[in-house]
């Protein structure tokens, strides 16, 4: 099986248009941060778009949107469109980042310092 866009120039506007169906800027998509963690909830759907299948496969363990973007070699903005589809179908779950509102809380910072000290 081959991806529909494989012969196209990497990340040309045309390729991205096909992969995302020309969609962008939906509210589901906006809720996904670069460091939202994505985890699969099911096996890939037979006959699904190759990019959808690839995401479901690689997210067997949690992966950030940024990592998915890196492994698929797609811009994060295209990845979030694909993720919105998978979320709507319940194929993946999204674990939102800890919002650092205006100021992150002291306990969170202490946890991070602890982790860094072990490096």
């Amino acid at each position: 099986m081959s991806g529909p866009a494989q012969d196209w120039e990497e990340n040309s506007p045309e390729r991205l248009y096909v992969i995302t169906g020309g969609r962008s800027g939906t509210s589901e998509q906006d809720a996904l941060d670069l460091v939202t963690l994505v985890v699969s909830r099911s096996e890939p759907q037979p006959g699904a778009q190759p990019e959808h299948t690839a995401i479901v496969r690689m997210c067997h363990y949690p992966l950030s949107v940024a990592e998915i973007s890196a492994y698929l070699r797609l811009p994060a903005s295209a990845v979030t469109v694909l993720l919105a589809d998978l979320l709507a179908d319940g194929r993946v779950e999204a674990r939102a980042p800890i919002p650092a509102a205006s100021l992150p809380d002291a306990e969170l910072l202490e946890a991070v310092m602890h982790g860094l000290q072990r490096l």
Binding site: L37, V39, Y61, S64, R95, P97, P104
Partner: peptide, 15 residues
């Protein structure tokens, strides 16, 4: 990711 680069399933949130 390579196997050794996988996060544990318990990874709940990122900063």
């Amino acid at each position: 990711p390579r196997c050794e680069d996988a996060l544990p399933s318990s990874a709940a949130a990122a900063v």
